[in-house]
Computed example of a mutant assay.
Amino acid sequence: MKKILHVAETIKGGVATVIRTISTSPEDQDANYQLVYLVPLDQKKELHGIDARQIRTFERSGRNVRSLLGFAWQLARVVLKEKPDVVHLHSTFSGVIGRCVCVLLKPWRSPKIIYCPHAFSFLMESSPTKQKIYSLIERVLQKVTDTIICVSQYELDKAAAFGIERKRMKLIYNGIHHKDEARKTEGAEPIHLLYVGRFDYQKGFDVLLKAYAKVQRSDLKLTVVGSAVNEDSVDCPPMAGVEYLSWVTPAEVQALYQKADALIVPSRWEGFAMVPLEGMALGLPVIASDCTSLPELVSHGVSGYVFPAGDHQALAERLMKIQKPALNALGIEGRRIVRERFSAALMIRQTYDVYSAPSY
């Protein structure tokens, strides 16, 4: 039996969805794998459906020195106690700290190290100096990494341009389970818009608020689902036609997808977002920015609409034009695309193939 340890410094949003998805082994091979998880205590509930006896936790009060040191200490303890064959690190902070911890533990334990950045730090909007520092860290740590999983072709190509060796990288698109049910379309008015995600700069939440404020349409309603997770959170001002909801259960999110007419994804950068996949699987059209990987999922005029990242005026102009019949047609095509190209079964099989491959 092969033991897999999933490690995440924070799992709010899409990372939790990815971990839950790949917690199902391919083709009923559960007897061949044992899964263990290390996640923040206050985010443990994000791993709903997973046996609590498999979950290890650490105290997280934010992205500060105390929390990061506590994460590193607990990871070292878990690796020594659980003796995993594979350590799968999710996101940048887990990737940096986790690989350093694994290097220090090498005299005692030497698991295979799999790293999925879910968007490299050097792909974020930042100064050239910061990008050079981030890419240097990644270039150094790649030497102790067996496989780096990239979730989009954009991410893989950009990482290669920054000096990450292609032979260490593997493209595995995020996938989603097939949905038998389809979105229920209703009458002409109003048009229900939906945003699901963090209230921060990366997710472009400020772009959505500025665009919506410019649109003078009484038939548009916007539901905002999420919360602030990082320090660069955006305020949520009261606006006519806007309803704010905190993080809700997956079942409640599914119900919101079912009722919405369009999903707004205004991100400035992404690894490969799960939210548009979830919506499209139910036939929900997506209005997305053209950042990083999103054009690999959302095709303009085919499965949704695309606007320039960070351009609230362009988003406002698009929202002024949308109509329900066209949105419904886009949603139907988007559902077909997800079913054919972005299945959970394919994602699971490719991930477990990486676990089973010989060490680099």
Score class of each variant (00 low, 15 high):
residue 189 E to P: 04
residue 188 A to E: 12
residue 280 M to L: 15
residue 342 F to C: 08
residue 194 L to F: 07
residue 303 S to Q: 10
residue 201 Y to S: 13
residue 190 P to Y: 06
residue 190 P to D: 03
residue 247 W to Q: 05
residue 149 I to V: 15
residue 140 V to P: 07
residue 89 L to N: 08
residue 142 Q to G: 11
residue 266 P to W: 08
residue 293 S to E: 09
residue 276 P to V: 00
residue 310 G to M: 03
residue 347 M to T: 00
residue 79 V to P: 07
residue 217 R to W: 01
residue 272 F to I: 04
residue 244 Y to T: 11
residue 21 T to L: 13
residue 247 W to L: 07
residue 99 R to F: 06
residue 63 R to A: 14
residue 260 A to K: 08
residue 267 S to V: 07
residue 264 I to S: 05
residue 86 V to R: 02
residue 257 Y to E: 14
residue 246 S to K: 04
residue 358 P to K: 15
residue 344 A to P: 00
residue 294 L to H: 08
residue 43 Q to D: 08
residue 274 M to G: 02
residue 147 T to S: 03
residue 84 P to L: 15
residue 282 L to F: 00
residue 123 L to N: 07
residue 301 G to R: 14
residue 160 A to I: 15
residue 334 G to T: 03
residue 128 P to I: 14
residue 141 L to V: 00
residue 243 E to P: 04
residue 45 K to I: 10
residue 344 A to R: 07
residue 194 L to M: 06
residue 287 I to K: 08
residue 196 V to Y: 01
residue 61 S to E: 15
residue 294 L to K: 08
residue 323 Q to F: 03
residue 264 I to C: 08
residue 358 P to A: 14
residue 3 K to C: 06
residue 154 Y to N: 13
residue 113 I to P: 14
residue 322 I to A: 03
residue 263 L to V: 10
residue 13 G to L: 13
residue 300 H to E: 12
residue 215 V to D: 01
residue 56 R to P: 04
residue 77 R to F: 02
residue 281 A to G: 08
residue 284 L to K: 12
residue 190 P to H: 08
residue 309 A to E: 04
residue 206 D to W: 04
residue 91 S to N: 06
residue 146 D to E: 10
residue 359 S to W: 07
residue 187 G to P: 01
residue 128 P to R: 14
residue 34 Q to P: 09
residue 3 K to F: 00
residue 239 M to A: 14
residue 197 G to V: 00
residue 308 P to Y: 13
residue 115 Y to S: 12
residue 249 T to V: 11
residue 231 E to A: 15
residue 63 R to M: 15
residue 331 G to Q: 00
residue 120 F to L: 10
residue 33 Y to E: 07
residue 26 P to F: 01
residue 118 H to Q: 05
residue 156 L to N: 13
residue 58 F to I: 00
residue 261 D to T: 05
residue 1 M to K: 13
residue 83 K to N: 13
residue 269 W to T: 09
residue 103 V to P: 05
residue 223 T to N: 11
residue 344 A to C: 06
residue 1 M to E: 09
residue 187 G to D: 09
residue 243 E to W: 03
residue 300 H to W: 09
residue 321 K to Y: 02
residue 111 P to D: 13
residue 291 C to W: 01
residue 178 H to Y: 13
residue 346 L to A: 11
residue 192 H to N: 14
residue 104 L to H: 02
residue 103 V to M: 14
residue 357 A to Y: 02
residue 296 E to G: 06
residue 351 T to K: 09
residue 330 L to E: 04
residue 69 L to Y: 10
residue 242 V to H: 06
residue 270 E to Q: 03
residue 121 S to I: 06
residue 196 V to H: 06
residue 325 P to M: 13
residue 252 E to T: 13
residue 84 P to N: 12
